[in-house]
Write a protein that binds this DNA or RNA. Structure first.
Lengths: 303, 303
DNA sequence: CCGATGCGGTGCAGGAAATGCACCGGGCAA
DNA sequence: TTGCCCGGTGCATTTCCTGCACCGCATCGG
């Protein structure tokens, strides 16, 4: 939409940190860009940037305006989606930020099921930890977020929440695999593999360990849940994960067992959006569906 | 803001019902306007108007877009207010739609008190009945609404509510003035003066009368609360009003008495805004103040 | 039936507005 | 100092928008 061109340029400048670089990105000359911005500032009634020797940076007024631009843009996209909808096109796009646990099973299934009904809808999926996912929502870069454990932002509006007790995962021939439920100390006493500190599972583990005067001391600490799942098959170690990202492997080599609730508190998976925002039709429908699927989630079998 | 020019023109066309008339209002030629709109429609991806023999009318897509425009405009105004605010200017504008009962005492006092602290803030006050006031909010024409009794729209977000029992008003020498509390039948048996049907007070009276198998049969029915207050001084009649619009007159000629709660249900005064909307700073602050003032409202003395 | 009227829409020429180019002064690093 | 990159500006050019004249069409009144 061309009437937002100036605002788009302002965003580009804010991102690039310099008018000349932004001009290059936007395929116009720096002088044209400069003048557009000066003109806009005059009309708006306030400067938007701090002019520094090495470039420019948004000042508070600019931050405010940029926020407005993003909200406007998102609302316009929603309107266009609704219009397309009422002309029967059923097109649209869903953008979503989620944590890694959703990647192997839950999200692929949900997206595929949704696209079976609405083949015109496309998706973008970003993998973000909790803090990043909330930033995604706040900047309107994603419509939805699906993250594990605590929510920081007040602007995060919870659509649905589902409990996910932390599970220990291990090779099928691991001694602990014989038990139905594990104690935390059983897991921490032996070699273990854990996600990095910023992940929700680790957060719960650290909290629980501290309470029990123990320490999470992983032999491998990683940001990749997939690495954890595969590593425990190689060394006699225990990993930690939430059940939504776990399934019985076909060959039965990987097993998972819940950790006693009295040791590690049950965490929650949150589906949320930016507070007060009217989502595009496609995203709103998908969110409703996700919420239903989360609510219908079976108690995970201790496979 | 010039980047909204096309949208402003679209709104003008929607309001005028014809491109030629809108062009005249906007001081451009019809051809220029026509082309702007066609161009916008092409870029937007959908027609916005039904072309009729005698002019044009918004189609659903146009309605949606217009709603977006109004929201955008309002949000931009809020941002500009915030920017002015952070440069310490404390300027701003509050627009409010309210019912007549607030005009004599409550609103003037509140506005004056607010302006004493923030002299840069200006106000516009529209007198609207309940339905109209809600339409004002929905079209972003007013920031706040302060109305009596029931709320229709789901988009009306209640900020504060305060009970206001219906009172009968009469001349000091009216026989009924001797009682501390009146029964509805006492009022309806004699000549009475009442607001028109669309007002909340009348709504409650009609409801109560129907329940008691009686009828509100006013000798004067009017849209002016002021007329009611003055009329009862001229003829031995009873009028109806809510206490927030009543004070002891200096000369003691006008008195008001509550009507028994078992006869007429207590109505409520609602302070509200458009659901989900971020108000301009000035309006938000004034709303907070209004809410506090409403909550602190004294039980009305039976003067 | 027919002309008058008011509507949205278009071809074309003139004019306003945005752009690109060349260049300035200034901070910064080597 | 020299060279570099920054934001900002004067001027010629181009792009885009506007205004005018006019078309086809539907409606209305005689």
């Amino acid at each position: 939409m061309r009437h937002l061109y100036s605002l788009r340029l302002i965003e580009a400048v804010a991102r690039a940190g310099s008018m000349r670089r932004a001009a290059e990105d936007a395929n116009i000359t720096a002088s044209a860009l400069n003048r557009r911005i000066r003109r806009f500032e005059a009309e708006f009634g306030a400067e938007l940037f701090e002019r520094l020797p090495g470039g420019v940076r948004l000042n508070p007024a600019g931050e405010l305006l940029l926020q407005h631009y993003r909200a406007t843009q998102s609302d316009l996209a929603r309107v266009q989606g609704q219009v397309a909808d009422l002309s029967g096109e059923r097109r649209g796009h869903v953008s979503l930020a989620c944590s890694q646990a959703l990647l192997p099973y839950f999200l692929p299934e949900q997206i595929a099921a949704y696209r079976a009904d609405h083949p015109g809808v496309t998706f973008s999926v970003k993998v973000r930890d909790r803090a990043e996912a909330e930033a995604e929502l706040a900047s309107y870069a994603s419509d939805l977020a699906l993250v594990f454990e605590p929510i920081y932002l007040v602007d995060f509006e919870v659509i649905e929440t589902v409990p996910q007790p932390v599970h220990a995962i291990m090779a099928a021939d691991h001694p602990l695999a014989a038990k139905v439920e594990l104690r935390l100390r059983d897991c921490l006493d032996g070699p273990h593999v854990a996600p990095a500190a910023r992940y929700g599972v680790r957060h719960l583990l650290d909290f629980a360990a501290r309470r029990g005067a123990r320490r999470v001391a992983p032999i491998v600490e990683t940001e990749s849940f997939e690495l954890i799942r595969h590593y425990v098959l190689h060394e006699r170690a225990v990993g930690f994960q939430i059940p939504i990202g776990l399934r019985d492997t076909r060959d039965g080599t990987l097993v998972f067992r819940p950790i006693a609730e009295r040791d590690v508190p049950v965490g929650n998976l949150f589906l949320g959006q930016m507070r007060g925002r009217a989502l595009p039709v496609a995203s709103a429908r998908f969110a409703r569906r996700l919420a239903a699927a989360l609510k219908a989630l079976p108690e995970p079998p201790a496979g």
